[in-house]
Amino acid sequence: MPISEQHKTGLQDLLLNERNSSVLVQLAKATTKNVCKIDDPEEALGLLVAHLPDIYILLSKRAITREMLFKYLTARVPDLATDFTKPDLVTKVINYWDQNATQSSSPSASQAVVSAAAIRSEEDFPIHAIARKFGEWFFERFNANSLSLVDLWTDATLHLTIMASDGINELECTTAAEVLASLTGAKQQFGFHFNPNLTHAGIQGRMDAYGQVVVLCCGTLHSAESSVGVFECAFGLLRDPYAGNNWKPKRIKCLLKSELRPPELHSLCSSETLQEALALPMPNDDLDSDAVN
């Protein structure tokens, strides 16, 4: 979903100023892999908006710090609490922009009085609720070695990529039994514990051209002693009418990557393999999120 005009206006308010213009240019250079020489902040903002399809992903970039968002909000929202994380601040900034846009577009003062509860942020879209619920369920079972064949479609497929210091291994599977054996085998071989980022910055839902709910999730890999890498997964879900109409994975694409200094919290905006999938449609209608295993 392209970044809306109201969010572009909000980004101008946040970034096109003396304090944050350098951050804006830095973000644009990083996003375009330094392919373009960028010195003008307005040009940098245009490139960012063109290359990042999701406002939440853009604001979750490491260069946009928690302190920057907090200072921006406190200058505009009175009595702002101080006990929330960066994902909370990102959501509050987006909600602030959405509410301002709603009020400014209303034709009368009476219509401008909009209940805050009625303003649904992108994070609250049903497809993202499905993604979070599925991700929590899947990785809890996977870490506990309780994932079973009935949790997958019988013709489930897997593309697994393992990147380590000694090279890259890729594996393709075309049955549920092979998928389960390969995922479990990789987990046991390396002693991995999967720690998914279950905030909106780390797990989101999309819809592909075939009507599958696509769950995009990333997180960190841990051994018994420390964090040893990151993972990025895309799950294609379809309902199974013979299993309570629950959403079950029909295809899985997964990257496991070892790193000497993994991030504390891996996010979708930093992913190497999920950027194309992040550009898929993001419906905001009800998909019955309760029917998820």
Rank of each mutant, 00 (worst) to 15 (best):
E225T: 11
L48H: 03
S21A: 15
I203E: 09
M282E: 12
H128T: 04
S4E: 13
A224R: 12
D39K: 03
T161W: 00
S289K: 03
H200G: 07
S21T: 12
W153R: 07
P78D: 05
Q103R: 14
N17K: 03
A109E: 09
F190A: 08
S104M: 05
C218L: 00
K33R: 14
R261I: 14
A234K: 10
I55S: 15
A181C: 02
C269Y: 05
I55F: 13
P263A: 09
P2D: 07
T273A: 15
M163A: 10
L14H: 00
L183D: 02
G202S: 11
H193P: 00
N34H: 14
R66D: 11
P262K: 08
A50L: 12
S148H: 08
P249M: 01
C36P: 01
G219A: 01
T91P: 01
W153P: 03
H266S: 12
A109K: 07
P283H: 08
L80S: 11
E42K: 12
T174G: 08
I119G: 01
L260E: 15
A63D: 15
E259M: 15
T175N: 10
V214Q: 06
I64P: 12
Q12V: 00
V292E: 02
L160Y: 05
R251C: 00
A112R: 14
L27K: 06
I127K: 05
M207G: 06
S182H: 06
N245C: 10
H200A: 14
V179L: 04
L147C: 05
I119S: 02
A177I: 09
V25H: 10
M282V: 10
L152D: 07
A63E: 15
P53W: 15
Q189S: 06
G191Y: 00
E276T: 13
V292D: 02
L11C: 02
E43N: 04
W153Q: 06
I64A: 10
E272F: 06
N20W: 04
Q99E: 08
L268Q: 07
L147A: 08
Q12A: 04
M163L: 07
W247C: 02
V114H: 11
D83C: 10
E272D: 15
W97C: 03
T154Q: 12
R141M: 12
G211S: 06
L15Y: 01
S223G: 11
E272C: 07
T184Y: 01
A116Q: 10
M163E: 14
E5C: 00
S182A: 15
D286I: 02
I127V: 15
E42H: 03
G202E: 09
Y56M: 14
T74R: 14
T174P: 01
D285V: 04
L149Y: 05
V114T: 13
D240V: 04
S165I: 03
L152C: 06
A164C: 06
L147Y: 08
N100G: 11
T154D: 11
S226E: 14
I162S: 10
F142S: 06
Q204K: 14
V114G: 03
A28I: 04
L69T: 01
C217K: 00
L255P: 06
R76F: 06
L198Y: 12
V292L: 09
F125S: 11
T74V: 13
K187C: 05
T220H: 01
